[in-house]
Design a protein around this nucleic acid. Structure first.
Ligand SMILES: [Zn+2]
Ligand SMILES: [Zn+2]
Ligand SMILES: [Zn+2]
Ligand SMILES: [Zn+2]
Lengths: 528, 528
DNA sequence: TAAGGTCAAGGTTAGC
DNA sequence: GCTAACCTTGACCTTA
């Protein structure tokens, strides 16, 4: 602290001292480069004199040591870092970034860092301040599409990769059209249709939409929008939860929680109070479930539950971006190929052995993905180990399906195998059998037609994971967790949709989930 | 601050939490891979389960956040701190040092600290007493070669860096033969020859050696020796400056100065009273010049001027070490290559474009170096801004030449470019033309033959910088500054040489300086 | 070429 | 106030 102050004094003093000389420095520099020409006899030296001047003023002036100072002739082959605008050195984790952001993202993922913003989650990241707020830097990384999963691009054959990358460049390198909201939301194909209703025994249908409807949190929706503000703010005054809720008195720590989640907390810690919530998740869930299922009872600690919902949504979104980010790039590839009306795909003429090899390679990644996601999923620790293991065993396919559904379009699959071959419908038929594939494609079609935003899509994963499976010891807890996520999803929908639309989409979604038990059944049969 | 604490808490909690799950994970993984078979129908799956398990455990894996702290088996990979013998943690600022000395050096440089030794400048630094005397600790740092310039090691290709480091290790890691005087002095090749005389219109020849000869300061020479005590202490009673000097009475602040520089000051502030001298440099210069040029007049304040001379010498030495420290490492490299009779150099087969690129890259560094050095040089503030800029423009080549002359040996140049290529004589011929190079090499050869100590070498820079150039507005001031430095150099020489030797070396040096206008001319021609 | 690794910068913050 | 252990950063390097 003192040191910092002194440093500041110092650099300020130095700056002042140099200030009068500063302009002269430019002059000196320019003349210097001319002077040095003797050493160099270079006719191109004039070209670098500006750069040089800049460097000197850096060197002479205060700090700023980071800059990759040496000369670089051509502007930058990769453009600017999508995160901080520094010079990009390549496509790292799927996004053109500088070395710093690459390393930062790598470390963040590696160590599963939990950051927190002390400035209200609105920091604008640039080269100079990028180390000021890790939280916002990391979120910018995610927002720009960085993902550990994106490394799988590296295995995609060159032609396709280039095409995908070119696409990426095209979409973002022109003057850096840095509208943050445009890059995240709505990457599913448009068109919203209603669908036939199916009863669903896996996804809880006892979540009464009427009951979880709001104004409950309505005055917060403006600030809840995760950096991609909704264009439409619905006025949803039709439903109101009742005011008095009796809390089970066995929850001793309730008072503490209430004292923690006071108004100032609401104001300061807007989105990611992971430390607070990860500790007493069970309490929050129970209270939230009570609120959802028994809307008659209400509590004074609405803020607390509001924060908890926010936490679930944000954390899930981040998790999804971090561990499932590849989908975005593969979707860009898909879009690009559809636009170019490409009908031939890598692997069309490969041997079935190659496809098998690709599938075999893919397993560890999907398993790892699933487990990593599940492990970090908020509330997962409330599930006991035995049940957790059962879920890991039983829900992998569902997870895989949700993850890849967006890559199914127009009766074709754009799923890629790690060896660069495309797992086309043709190959899926060959491997899984036509019946199974047809059901899957129908599911995917309906799912994509919902046109979920990225934030909504992310919440599907926990909902699918936390299914009240009869094999589980403690079905109730799992179910409660699912309730919370369903509720979170619904509130998320309300941030970008009218209430009517949200309800429709939500109901349709529940109906689509009815496919899952069927698909699971088909799968089981194939094993047998 | 809070963030770090929170993170630590958090990660520790996470680690503990996961620990119990860890073994079960293996189990889960195995079962999972079996489960996934449904997707794949693959019989080879068992093969990958190990890899998979490993991946998961990595992903799960607890902390391992860098620190070598926990298990460090091997003593210290970097040996002992060259400054204090503590455990070295890396090569900091070019020298293997501990964290403490690294931080201390950083703080000292950053804040341009002026320290003072209260124990006679002879403190022996070790781990226990290193905080006893900052002055001696800082000088030990410099003596060992720490230098902000040394950070440029990072740019030197690995091969060379390793060689340099190995060399460094070799020379000091064997039981730490820590003779401080052996590592600093005399790194130029031996052999002292006389040379033909040239008139020199740039370096003041009106500094009468006879006049500045001493006993003037002779009783001080013992303590003036800057940690590398002279082996021979000459008795130099032949020349004596006169006793009475009339001071120009317009200097009002003289009395203050005298009162400051009393006997106790002389005793306490032996070497680096930067604060005192940096304020009234002009006064000191004038008085010193009067004394040098008009030895008839003497003053009572000899001590003051003695201190001023010391200040010039010490400060210049420190400056040189701080900002030109890379030369030492490059010289170690050179020596090593000469010993190994290496005749092939990096860049021998490079394209001329690569050499150009390296030269182009080098400019900003040399410019920065020059400016930084000049800015901090004592007495530089007496030169007005316009003249300062002119000097910056006109003396860069001389500065560069003096800086690199020690890297020229036996008709070969060991100058390195930032891109790791060696700027060999062959390339210099190609770039500068043979005539110029030949003159430069002759200059360098004669210069190196002087076999200057590091302390003497450092003083060459200000002498070369403060040249009575006809373009300058105020030639006199510049000239006076040069006189002071010349005088400082001569007194410096007397600390390690007999008077006769000092005179010879000094005269030879003045003659060698005669090359500079010639070289500058050649340079100008090339520009034209 | 983009992962991942390296390691010396600089920053942080106990502890004195 | 400074010291120094510990930590994060990012330019450069190695690997595949
Ligand atoms: Zn960046
Ligand atoms: Zn922030
Ligand atoms: Zn040390
Ligand atoms: Zn001392």
């Amino acid at each position: 602290m003192n040191e910092v102050i002194i440093n500041n004094d110092h650099s300020r003093a130095a700056a002042c001292e140099n200030q009068s000389m500063f302009d002269d420095d430019h002059y000196v520099q320019k003349r210097k480069s001319r002077r040095v020409r003797t050493l160099l006899k270079s006719p191109v030296i004039e070209l670098i004199s500006d750069e040089q001047t800049e460097q000197i003023s850096n060197a002479t002036g205060a700090r700023r040591n980071s800059t990759n100072s040496s000369s670089d002739k051509r502007p930058f082959p990769f453009g600017h870092c999508r995160v901080c605008m520094d010079k990009a050195t390549g496509a790292h984790y799927g996004v053109p970034t500088c070395e710093g952001c690459k390393g930062f993202f790598k470390r963040s993922i590696l160590r599963k860092e939990k950051y927190r913003c002390y400035f209200g989650d609105g920091c604008v990241i640039n080269t100079d301040n990028r180390n000021r707020c890790k939280s916002c830097r990391f979120h910018k990384c995610l927002k720009e599409g960085m993902s550990v999963d994106g490394v799988r691009m590296g295995r995609i054959p060159k032609l396709i990769k280039e095409k995908a990358l070119a696409e990426h460049h095209l979409s973002s390198s022109s003057i850096e059209n840095d509208d943050p909201s445009s890059s995240v939301a709505s990457s599913s194909p448009p068109c919203l249709s209603s669908m036939n209703s199916n009863s669903n025994n896996l996804i809880s249908t006892d979540v009464n939409l009427q009951l979880i409807d709001e104004h409950f949190f309505s005055d917060d929706f403006e600030s809840i929008s995760m950096d991609t503000p909704p264009t439409i703010l619905p006025s949803c005054n039709d439903y109101m939860l009742s005011e008095d809720l009796t809390i089970d008195e066995t929850k001793n720590d309730l008072k503490e929680n209430i004292s923690i989640s006071n108004r100032s907390l609401l104001n300061n810690c807007t989105e990611n109070c992971g430390e607070t919530f990860s500790k007493n998740v069970l309490e929050h869930i129970k209270k939230l479930v009570i609120k959802i299922l028994h809307p008659r009872f209400n509590t004074v600690s609405d803020q607390e539950q509001l924060l908890f919902i926010r936490y679930l949504r944000r954390k899930t979104f981040d998790l999804c971006n971090t561990y499932n980010g590849c989908t975005r790039q593969l979707m860009e590839r898909m879009t690009s190929m559809i636009n170019q009306q490409i009908k031939e795909f890598p692997g069309d003429y490969s041997s079935v052995q190659d496809i098998w090899a690709g599938l075999t390679d893919a397993i560890p990644f999907h398993v790892k993905n699933f487990i990593t996601f599940a492990r970090e999923m908020p509330a997962i620790n409330e599930i006991d180990l035995d049940d957790f293991n059962k879920i890991m065993n039983n829900r992998l396919f569902d997870f895989w399906l949700i993850k890849h559904a967006p890559l199914i379009h127009n009766n074709e699959s754009y799923i890629m195998l790690p060896n660069g071959l495309q797992y086309t419908r043709q190959w899926m038929n060959h491997i899984m059998g036509e019946k199974m594939v047809e059901t899957m494609f129908e599911f995917a079609r309906k799912f994509n037609e919902l046109n979920l935003t990225q934030e909504e899509y992310a919440l599907i994963f926990p909902i699918v994971i936390c299914v009240k499976d009869k094999n589980l010891n403690d079905q109730e807890t799992v179910h409660h967790i699912q309730c919370c996520y369903l509720y979170s999803l619904y509130t998320q929908m309300l941030t970008t949709r009218t209430q009517l639309e949200a309800k429709t989409v939500f109901r349709n979604l529940l109906q689509i989930f009815a496919f899952l038990p069927l698909l699971n059944e088909l799968q089981e049969k194939q094993v047998g």
